[in-house]
Amino acid sequence: MSGSLIGGYVLPNKPHPLLAPEQNAGWAELREAMEECGREIARSDADLLLIFSTRWTSIIGHQFQADPEPDWWEVDDDFHEYGTLRYKLRMDAPFAERWCAAARARGLHTRTVAYRGFPIDVGTVAALKLLNPDNRIPAGVVSCNMYSDRAETIVLGKATRDAVEQSGRKAIAVAVTSFSNRMFTEWIDPADDRIHSPKDDEWNRKFLELLGEGRLEDVSQLAREFTRQANGDSKMKALWWLAATMGQHNDYAGSVRAYAPIWGTGAAVVGLVPAPGRAGNLEYDEDDTDHYRGEREVLAQQPS
């Protein structure tokens, strides 16, 4: 039986909704929306949550979390006074191996990681604690390679889809990312939090309007421009991954559940469910790569 992606979400990557919702109404709204997504997932027949978090960066290709029960803690580098994120999560280790192999089969450099004390990133922990508080559904997490660009990330998304289809699972893909990513560089009163600039706010709202219409592939193909204009988080790789994982089209029912600033950045909770015939298809013209063939070594050369 072929597996499938039955839905997707975009969630914030900062710990504020989990650790300090009482300090800002927007952070509380984001938390409430994430919890509602969790209830929605619990009502679905999903049996796997797959996460791409911009807070877990890698250099050597892509890493896949394969510890079946990571049990540790993490503290945010900036917001350590908000407290400690203690976690005991449930990962699908066999699926991690399958996912890793599927990515390797498409030419990516990959490995699984399963080590006691491995620091699961703040974004992933916050997302899983609010989406899946009782660990009812096992999860998988992949890192965000700091050198990868669109082609490599699209291939990773396709490999994610390959792995789900081969596994027979019903999966939900979760992109953990900010939208505009300009933080305030000073201490602010959390109650006064706002999007860093009206320009960032306009670009966030433009993207969220498209996502609300289910136009995920359009958003993916506009990501470069968004990054240029609004300092997008990690080139918006999480949305490239999400769009490729979910099939590279615009036929979704999208819903923007919450949008609020977190320390100046744009944070949103968005839901996407496949809905054939919803919107146009592939309006833009970015590359659609199927197999990653490695770096082309344009710059690398042995010193003479």
């Binding site: 580098d77 900036d78 004390g117 620091p119």
Partner: peptide, 19 residues
């Protein structure tokens, strides 16, 4: 948000490099 300084008297534990 600024420059941070370690303000606890002792650091002890297991450090696993995420990269």
């Amino acid at each position: 948000v600024g420059h941070h300084f370690l303000g606890i008297p002792r650091c002890k534990g297991l450090s696993v490099d995420p990269i």
